[in-house]
């Protein structure tokens, strides 16, 4: 049976993106393998260091720009991460200067919010309601 071990977001500057995804969002670096101009660069959750990784993937391909622009314009996130307490996380990230395109919204079984990673991606944060 296949398992999901990695997913990715397209970023322009991998090192700047690493800083945002670790220092601001709170992930930790898992792998950094130099590959010429770029690197195989992944982060993981501190709570689950052996869990699925997020690849910070270079966005040089010409199709990536229009794809990201169109999704961002309509507010559509390209990745979704789970948090235990969305209200607290929203507050914490606002304090760090993060911009939300959607404040926490209670949808019954989930609460969700959407933030701008400043690398052209919108990121959804989800709290599963028990």
């Amino acid at each position: 049976m296949p398992r999901i071990y990695i997913t990715s977001v397209f970023v322009g500057d991998q090192q700047k993106a690493l800083a945002f995804y670790t220092d601001v969002l709170g992930f930790q670096k898992k792998m950094e393998i130099p590959l010429g101009e770029h690197a195989w660069l992944t982060v993981v959750s501190k709570e689950d260091p052996d869990g699925p990784q997020l690849l910070l993937e270079p966005d040089q391909h010409p199709a990536v720009g229009p794809y990201k622009e169109a999704l961002a314009a309509d507010g559509i996130p390209c990745a979704s991460f789970a948090v235990d307490d969305l209200a607290a996380e929203h507050e914490r990230l606002l304090g760090l200067g993060v911009r939300f395109t959607q404040d926490p919204l209670d949808m019954g079984t989930v609460k969700m919010a959407v933030l701008d990673d400043t690398f052209g991606n919108l990121i959804q944060l989800v709290e599963l309601v028990e």
């Binding site: 309509d74 507010g75 559509i76 996130p77 959607q102 949808m107 959407v114």
Partner: peptide, 8 residues
């Protein structure tokens, strides 16, 4: 609201 939020 973004289109995404409105649809949700």
């Amino acid at each position: 609201q973004t289109l995404f939020e409105l649809c949700a």
